[in-house]
Amino acid sequence: MKYAYYPGCSLDATGIEYDIANKLVARTLGIELVEIPDWNCCGATSAHTTNHLLALALPARNLAIAEAHGFEQVAVPCAACFARCKKTAAAVQASPDLQVQISEVIGMTYAAKSEILSYLDVIGKKTGLDHIKKHVVQPLTGLKIAAYYGCLLVRPVDITQSDDPENPMVMDRLLQVIGAEPIAWDYKTECCGASQVVPVPQLGKKLIHDILKNAASYGADAIATACPLCMLNLDMRQKQINAMFGTQFHIPVFHFTELMALSFGYSAQDFGLAKHFESAESLLERMIGGKGA
């Protein structure tokens, strides 16, 4: 399978280890990822809170480039980028006038014909679980993982086409295939606070705290994410949460592709596990005899 790959800004910076793991997994599974040339920022949260047209034009340009190169499918690993791309495609599909307007703004034709997929859906829905299973050499047996989806991958459901906006199972099934034990928990799709942690820390941190607390209450050994910002919030801020709420959370958080890479036999040195804030070393020691670390 061949996909246009839109890493977005995060995967060049705070989520760099996500990008590395994505590419390892793609290589193993025989998925060809072709980075969209000359891509720009999707606008993230800033654009759509300032200018509606700009918020549509920014993702449209990237998608138009992908279309111009003949790609029928675009893989988007970041949940926020995914949401913006999907929204843009839906808006353009719904309005021929808008399509003309957007094409004029970006100076190229955007037909909104290509299928936009989150990287989670590329792996979990398009690749085939049997195919993935064949590559598992180091099953993560006994590892209890809370699959965390956040909001933007699942909502609004008519745009994201999530399997179930209240209890999605795509990542859970993937985790099962690589031998781990996905847990049934309640905060799968609650918001991680996104960038609210910066302007309204007491609110944002509470949201993160609640997610960690619920995962811990179900005995999660780790949390798996499919979004660089969710990852950052849940991983980097545990120390701050503990200070604010007097808790003792030390839950390793992974990008789901990192766990897959581990199960495919890669070692932690092959991707960016060392870049995580909450150490996964002891967990991996216990899990797979330290082979990962």
Binding site: D164, P165, E166, N167, A184, D186
Partner: peptide, 9 residues
Amino acid sequence: IYGEYGYGR
């Protein structure tokens, strides 16, 4: 249909 209310769990 009410996943948010726990699907009867």
